[in-house]
Design a protein around this nucleic acid. Structure first.
Length: 889
RNA sequence: GGGAGGUUAGCUCAGCGGUGAGAGCACCUGCCUUACACGCAGGGGGUCGCGGGUUCAAAUCCCACACCUCCCACCA
């Protein structure tokens, strides 16, 4: 069936995806004896929609997966979704509020709200699934997982319990990051620092001057700290002062000496607010200072702040307190100041440090068995990268990673929201505490109200998803260790091969997967981490709805141009860690490539005819040989680029080879007899085209699959073997010779254009090959056609090119002459002179270098050899051109 | 304040010690040549950020500087 004029993606995509899926091509076979290649899909938010960040990741993952599948690996790409605790809960609460429910938490209660959220997730999770499908992702849907699956919950609870028993998880009173908007704690890594203009106030404070950008917290001060060696304050150390604020409470501050104080900063005297500053809290712990909380969980002042300020927001209190201080003459100064303010990365609201008892993961306790040692989490995290057990791409991210580890503090894992894995800890009375993966027997137990940080469950993703859910359900009594040991997928597909994700979640997720997996499973979660960059708009800004003219919507792109266009646009030229600017022009460029591939298919279809033949035992025609040699070179090159994870670069190379070698040279050449109409040509054309389809397939699966079927490829392309070099068809010599012919064609075309010879004018051409005469002879009809020659003569010597009425071009492998007829000989002279000038200049450079004793003795022999042969060739070219000029007069 | 990456043609980028610096897009000229005008052929265009240094040889390595981007930092 002849191909349509243009490829219309929407006509084919859905049906092809269904054929792939129903054929079982996506499903991993745990029993095969092929080497395993595994990717755990980073689970998108179950209630989300696909954005370009997902799209670039999935496109890259699918490239890897399809490549390895064709290359013969047993591939598993495990898809799934995340319950995204904070994000999902706040969306549902907002929706309920829009529907008129003032306080959903209060009105529905815990069970009611959780049920509502689960219902919402169930309803909306289909969207992301169908969008992943539309992209063409060849993932194993039979193994789809969700971070709230029963099996995963069991893994979470068992992990918590084991860490608790090992002392890696503890409950402690700390200054935590409290988000008064979301009403929950957040981890240190979930904080962004935003610089905001503020004032740095200096206030009189007993005998001291104290600087602060947060005067309102001074209502809760219990000490003044100075550096132990600071001479200015020696007499005060150890004393306690009573300070009565103008309109507020009276506080008692002890003067303590502490190394943490920098004498150079501020006034050198630090007002210590243990309840609202982590550093002050630590000072307070060291000196046994009391803790007075003046800000509550709503971000308002408490009773301890005094009657006047109680109930004010932090901002209101700051303004009021400063005014009061000023009125009382206690304000010594106020200067402009850029204040680094902690912001929650989710809610974008200001974080309030508050003292609260929370659950933490201890990163310094040495209880993790690793390579025969017992290490701390921090040490294992460092070792797996330092030892090369895990490779980070791009490599420079290792430095960022080590820097993060050096500054790592205990990880706060408890959250005060309701949606998520509930902390598996039960209390009974004051004394009894139970930790386990199932609720304890007996009456009177109360479960901890908090839930776990989403990243706690995500951190188990690579292996918790491989546990056999049926086994887990049938055997609730099995320990996690036994479940892992008895789940076939775990042994077969873990550790995974690659983790492909954005570099922005290196700490949130990558590091925590390493942390949890080394501890729980005793192996790394993956061998390679491929981190893609951000997708930006054409101006290099983040795409946003406020800039619709440059934003690109993945769904609309798939609908308008097809999934292949979107995928290839995101991958072409992309490299680990590199941000990519995506624009309409980029999409159009890929669209043209697909159009070219499609149209080449039409010509191939015509050339191959109804009955494609297999490659003959030997291939005779040099151009056919050349095509085979080019394919070999390309396949070899691509294997090496892909092996180095350079998929974007590989895609460029395939594109260039396909367009400039196959289309521009080969497909033009085979229109001419005797290549045209020969069975050998049909076979080579078919073989070459199918090879390009295979190479393109990981990037553009849909259009290549359509063309594969149209070209009579066997079964489906998704399961076809990756191209390999066939030792029976190696023609290295043909490459060089036909390259010379191609250069000759270019030289004649240049002469044609420079002499202003109209395309309709048939020119008379003579070629004197100085090498590869037989190949030139075999290719003569092709040359004749591609340069639109009326006649073509092959000469045995340069003699024929001496005639005055010709234009000549010279190369190391040939001289070509174009009979000019009426054309301007002066133009020819000028062209030659220009060429001569360039050649002489270059020869001059080479000769200078060759005369340099230092170069001859110190340079690598191969460099000297190349310089010599280049000079040789140039001299011949120059001499021929000079003779030619002489005959022109 | 600490750290990382970048600066090559009008734009997006490749090249990362071997010597005439490349691609795509854009531009110019000519072509609807029976696969493709989403195309074909030819062509113009670059002090490789600035200044030093190492080397027979530097866009490529080293040092300093300038500018851009990003990450980290307990808010005196």
């Amino acid at each position: 069936m002849p191909l349509d004029q243009y490829f219309e993606a929407s006509k084919y995509e859905q049906a092809i995806y269904e054929r792939w899926e129903s054929s079982g091509a996506f499903r991993a076979d745990v029993d095969s004896d092929r080497p395993a290649f595994t990717i755990s899909m980073p689970p998108p938010n179950a209630t989300g929609t696909l954005h370009l960040g997902h799209a670039v990741g999935m496109a890259l993952e699918d490239v890897m997966i399809r490549w390895r599948r064709m290359a013969g690996d047993e591939v598993l790409w495990l898809p799934g979704t995340d319950h995204a605790a904070i994000a999902t809960e706040s969306v549902v609460i907002r929706n309920l509020q829009k529907e008129g429910m003032a306080d959903p938490r209060h009105e529905l209660g815990r069970d009611g709200l959780v049920a509502k959220i689960a219902e919402f997730v169930e309803q909306s999770r289909g969207t992301i699934r169908s969008q992943i499908r539309a992209l063409g992702a060849s993932c194993d849907w039979s193994r789809e997982r969700y971070t709230m699956d029963a099996t995963l919950n069991r893994a979470v609870n068992a992990t918590f319990a084991r860490m608790f028993r090992d002392g890696l998880i503890y409950r402690g009173l700390r200054i935590i990051n409290w988000d008064p908007h979301l009403k929950t704690t957040v981890a240190d890594d979930e904080i962004e620092t935003k610089e905001r203009p503020a004032k740095l106030y200096t206030m009189r404070y007993g005998p001291f001057l104290v600087a602060t950008s947060r005067p309102e917290t001074k209502l809760g001060d219990t000490a003044v700290a100075v550096h132990p060696d600071d001479e200015r304050w020696q007499e005060h150390i150890g004393k306690t002062y009573e300070i009565t604020w103008p309109q507020g409470p009276t506080i008692h501050v002890r003067v303590v000496a502490d190394q943490a104080v920098d004498p150079e900063t501020g006034t050198g005297a630090l007002g210590v607010t243990p309840a609202h500053s982590a550093i002050d809290f630590e000072i307070a712990e060291r000196h046994g200072l009391p803790l007075v909380q003046v800000i509550d969980e709503d971000g308002r002042m408490t009773a301890a702040a005094g009657e006047r300020y109680q109930g004010m927001t932090v901002e209101e209190c700051r303004a009021a307190f400063v005014a009061d201080l000023d009125a009382a003459g206690l304000l010594a100064g106020a200067e402009d100041y850029i204040q680094p303010t902690p912001i929650c990365y989710r809610s974008k609201q200001v974080i309030e440090p508050l003292p609260k008892a929370q659950w933490f993961v201890d990163v310094n306790k040495p209880v993790v068995p690793w390579k025969g040692q017992t290490l701390s989490i921090r040490q294992v995290l460092r070792d797996v990268i330092a030892d090369g057990d895990i490779q980070l791409l791009p490599k420079h991210e290792e430095k960022t990673y080590f820097h993060w580890i050096d500054n790592l503090r205990d990880w706060c894992i408890s959250r005060q929201i309701w949606w998520g894995h509930r902390i598996p800890v039960w209390y009974r009375g004051e004394e009894d505490l139970y930790v386990g993966h199932r609720s304890p027997e007996g009456a009177g137990w109360e479960q901890d109200p908090d839930t776990l940080d989403t990243w706690f469950s995500s951190a188990l993703w690579t292996w918790s998803t491989l546990i056999d859910p049926e086994l887990a359900e049938a055997h609730p009594e099995l320990s996690l260790r036994e479940l892992l040991a008895r789940s076939p997928d775990v042994a077969r597909f873990h550790p995974t091969s690659v983790m492909e994700t954005g570099y922005d979640i290196l700490f949130f997720w990558i590091a925590r997967m390493i942390l949890m997996t080394t501890y729980m499973v005793g192996e790394v979660p993956f061998h390679t981490v491929y981190m893609h960059g951000l997708i930006l708009d054409r101006d290099g800004d983040k795409m946003s709805k406020s800039k619709p003219e440059t934003a690109i919507d993945p769904q609309a792109t798939i609908a308008d141009h097809g999934a292949d266009v979107l995928r290839m646009s995101l991958v072409l030229g992309n490299a680990p860690g590199k941000d990519l600017k995506l624009s309409e022009e980029r999409l159009v460029g890929v669209k043209r490539l697909i159009n070219k591939l499609w149209n080449a298919g039409k010509l191939v279809e015509r050339t191959v005819g109804e009955h494609p033949t297999a490659l003959p035992a030997t291939i005779e025609h040099p151009i056919n040989q050349w095509m085979m040699a080019r394919l070999d070179g390309l396949v070899d090159l691509i294997d090496r680029r892909f092996g180095d994870w350079a998929f974007g670069d590989g895609a460029e190379l395939i594109r260039t080879a396909f367009w400039s070698e196959f289309c521009d040279v080969y497909l033009e050449a085979i229109k001419v007899p005797p290549l045209a109409g020969s069975a050998e040509t049909a076979a080579v054309t078919h073989h070459a085209y199918l090879t390009y389809l295979k190479l393109f397939h990981p990037f553009m699966p849909y259009v290549t699959e359509v063309l594969w079927r149209e070209m009579g490829g066997e079964d489906m392309l998704i399961g076809a073997p990756w191209p390999a070099i066939d030792p029976a068809h190696r023609y290295p010599e043909a490459g060089e010779a036909v390259d010379a012919v191609v250069r000759a064609i270019g030289a004649i075309r240049s002469v044609r254009a420079e002499q202003g010879l109209e395309p309709k004018v048939k020119i008379e051409v003579a070629i004197h090959p100085t090498a590869h005469r037989d190949v030139f002879e075999a290719c003569a009809p092709v040359v004749e056609r591609l340069v639109r020659a009326g006649s073509l003569e092959l000469l045995d010597s340069a003699a024929g090119t001496d005639e005055p009425g010709t234009a000549v071009a010279v190369d190391a492998a040939f001289e070509v002459a174009v009979r000019l007829g009426q054309a301007d000989r002066e133009a020819e002279k000028q062209r030659l002179e220009k060429q001569l000038e360039q050649d002489r200049k270059r020869l001059g450079g080479l000769e200078k270098r060759l005369a340099d004793e230092n170069f001859l003795t110190r340079a690598k022999p191969i460099a000297v050899e190349k310089a010599k042969s280049d000079a040789e060739a140039l001299r011949a070219t120059i001499q021929a051109a000079e003779e030619r000029l002489a005959t022109l007069g």
